[in-house]
Simulated scan of single mutants.
Amino acid sequence: MALRPLHRLEVQTPVGVQTAVNGCAAMVERVGALHAQGLDDTQIAAQLSREGFHSARRSDVAEDAVTTIRHAYRWLDRTGPRPVVREGYHTVPALAQRLGVRPQWVYRRLHTGQIEAEYVTATHRHSSWIQDDPALISRLQIQA
């Protein structure tokens, strides 16, 4: 009876945590480099998957794994969250930027009533929307 040659078979064993994955340090380094190039987490995950990296329990790189790595190393989005726009209104940070003051300046005027309640709409998330009223903006610009 003739012996058949053995074939080498590679098996990827799932591991419990990302840091136990072979090449984790290299993957972290690539996440940093790709993030610095301006790629978002979805694009970074796809690129890393094409390069042969994988997440702890997957054969590719999950987007949330990239997000977790970025946050662990404090590689946060440079632009912050996408701005929410409401026609005819300003958020506190947006109004502060328009007036050239810090957001605390605007919050102080909200809390002391210098920005009257009729100009303010509050949301369920404790955010304030301030009307883009020309008279109000003019008055605040003089105070700033």
Rank of each mutant, 00 (worst) to 15 (best):
A20K: 00
G88D: 03
L9Q: 10
T112I: 13
P103K: 07
Q12I: 08
D77R: 08
S59E: 12
I137C: 04
V21D: 00
T13V: 11
G38N: 11
A45L: 12
G32H: 09
G38P: 07
R108W: 12
L6G: 06
R125L: 14
Q141F: 03
A2S: 15
V17D: 04
D60Y: 15
G88N: 05
R108E: 12
T42Y: 03
G80W: 14
R58W: 13
L99Y: 08
R30V: 00
A117W: 08
W75C: 03
A122E: 12
V120T: 11
L39V: 10
L136A: 01
T91C: 09
A94I: 01
V85A: 10
R102T: 14
R4N: 15
H71E: 12
P81D: 06
E63G: 07
Q104M: 10
R125V: 09
A65L: 08
T19R: 02
L76K: 03
I44D: 11
G80I: 10
A94K: 02
P93N: 07
G32V: 02
L110N: 04
A135D: 04
L136W: 04
E51Y: 15
W129M: 11
R108I: 12
D41K: 12
L110H: 07
S138G: 05
V92Q: 02
A94F: 02
V31N: 01
S138A: 13
Q18L: 10
S59Y: 06
T112C: 15
T19H: 03
R86I: 01
I115A: 03
Y73V: 04
A122T: 11
T112N: 15
P83Y: 01
E118H: 15
H90R: 06
S127R: 13
I137E: 02
A117R: 14
R139G: 00
N22G: 03
Q143S: 08
A26E: 12
A36N: 08
H90P: 00
L48I: 07
T68G: 14
L9A: 07
H54G: 15
M27R: 01
V17G: 00
V17A: 03
V15N: 05
V120E: 14
Y73Q: 06
Q47H: 13
E87S: 04
P103S: 13
G88C: 05
R8H: 10
F53N: 09
P5M: 04
R74C: 05
S138T: 11
G88Y: 07
H111Q: 09
F53H: 13
V17E: 08
R102M: 14
E10L: 12
T79D: 10
Q143K: 13
V11S: 00
